[in-house]
Structures are given as structure tokens and as C-alpha cells.
Nucleic acid binder design. Sequence first.
DNA 1: CATCAGGGCCCTG
DNA 2: CAGGGCCCTGAT
Length: 327
Amino acid sequence: MPDPVLLQHQHTAQIEPTAPFSFDATMHKPDHFPSADNLWQPGIRWQTMLWQNTPVGLRYENEGTANEPCVSLSVWSEHALTPAFIASLVAEVRFRCNFDLDLTAFDARFGSDPHLGPIIHKWWGMRPANFGALYEYLIIAIVLQNATVRRSVSMMQALFEQYGTLLAYDGKELYCFWPPEVVDRATEEELRALKVGYRAKSIKRVTGAFIRKEIDEFKLRACSWEEQRQTLLRLYGVGPASVGYILGDVFHRLDEMVSISPWEQRIYSKLFFDQEPENPVPVDTLLCFFNDRFTPYRMLAVHYVWEDLFWKRRHESMPWLEKLIRL
DNA sequence: CATCAGGGCCCTG
DNA sequence: CAGGGCCCTGAT
């Protein structure tokens, strides 16, 4: 391991998310594969962040309750930060973590639903969240493609070790994502040496699109849902499955539900129809069902059921699920 | 040892 | 619009 960059300056800010807010169910997603840029324990999430080209180490801490939410955000940096920098960073994490999401309409509509209601109350205030930048999510999406979880983890780790920056703060050592310029300078062969295989080409070309400013995360936020979809689909190596995740997680499209991959199909079949994975419900049937039941919150509704399943998995073994996850 | 499919996507015919 | 190929890895 390289010598970490020691972050010695610490700033703190208080954030009050909208109520209701579930800290743990929002700030930790048990279905995400572990990656060296973050760490979680109940009540605390550590997360590195490259903001305005400055690597920082974040610690989110729960200091509130579901109905009186309060998050204390500590920011570690190599050099002292200006108030303007902190302010823009706080605004950005408010967006990324969905701290301003208003769940009241969703809760009112589905809170007494026989299936969804109990799950909503169990994870009261949970919201979809994404802790990184669009560029970073794209890299993760590419690394996820056509690979088992174990392999995705090792590809991501190799990329961090080669191109990321190791940060030391708050007694932790975590990698920070690289700016696109760093991977832009790398060759495809260099990437392939990290065993990312044919994904090297996608990583290079997506990185190039950011370098050439063909895509801008902040401009894209203001675009329509379909404009966002088309812009993302134009990226080489990014198809409908990756775009679906990005529209939901990065752009908070709570009704996104377009593509269902075979493994998701089998899990949905079990969760919503109690069908065994061997003979799953057809994708079209699932899409119609979600459409009828959950519009305009198809992604959000499914997110609750999905996350509930993966939280359960932490202390309950579910052999049918283990088979589908393929570690 | 060989073969195959995996938490997709591109490209070709 | 269907299907082969793609890097690698682990399961069979």
C-alpha cells in the first residue's frame, strides 16, 4: 500500500434532513458490494469524496431520530477549507444523499398497503441515496457488468490502488476516486493489466466523454428524464441496465422501472409472487404489475422491498438468494 | 483437463 | 431483432 495522504484539518457542519429520515437504511445499502472508498457501522458512515478536485474524507454521524433528523458531517482535508468550499460541499451531499426528499406522499399512499406498508414502517424514512459522483457511478456500473460480485470487488480495488489516492483520516484509511484526467492518461493496455478485460475500452471512452465535456453531471440534473436517459445511453459501454440504476440512484428518478435483468427477475418473482427462481414470472408481467401498483413510485417501492431483503440477509441465511447473488 | 455462464453491451447480419 | 463475442474467474 502507498503512504496515505494524512488529512489533518477538520471542519464540521450540521445537516437536518427532512423527516422522516432513517439514517442507517439511507446511509448504508447492504446490497452494494464493499468498496475501499467507504465504511459503515450503525450510526456512522465514512466516505471519501473528490470535490472540486480536492480529496476530502467525510464522516456522517447520526445525531437525531427518525422524526427529528440531524446528521453531523465532519470533513477532513489536507489543507484548511474555505467556508464557500464547505457550503458547496454540503449542498452537494444534501443532493446525493437525498436529504431533502419528501416522503410524505409516498408514505401516505403505501403506508397501509398489506405488503409494502410493514416494510415502509420498518425502514421508516429510508431513501435511495448515492454517495459518489456520476462519473464514479459509471465506473462502478461498468465493473459490475457480466461479472460475479467477487470479480467486481477485485476490479474496483485494483483501480483504486492504481489510480486512486489513499487518504488517512479519523483513524481510517480509505481510497478516494481519481479525477477523469488520471485515467485519461492511462492506456487501454495499462487498464487491462488490472484484469478489467474488455471493460478497459468502456472505461477509457466514458472517461474521455468527461474530459471532452460531452457530459456534465450538473447540467444533466436539470434535464428531463428522457434527455438524461438518451445522454447516458450514448456513452460507450453503458446500456439500459446501467442507465436504469443511474437514473434511480444518481438522478433520483423515483419511478424509474424500465429494464429487469434475469437475476433481478428471479428475485422479484420470489418477493412479489412467491415464485421459485426456477420458474420466474415473465418480465412483462412484472413490469405491468409494478406499473399498476406503484406508479409514480415504482423504483422507490421496489427499493424498500429489495433493501429489506438484503438487510434480512445480514443475520438470516436464505439459500435461494445466495444462489442468485453469486459471490 | 475442457466448457460454460456470469448483477451487459456492442456489433453484425 | 437475434445472437455471437468479449476479459476473466470459479463452478462443474
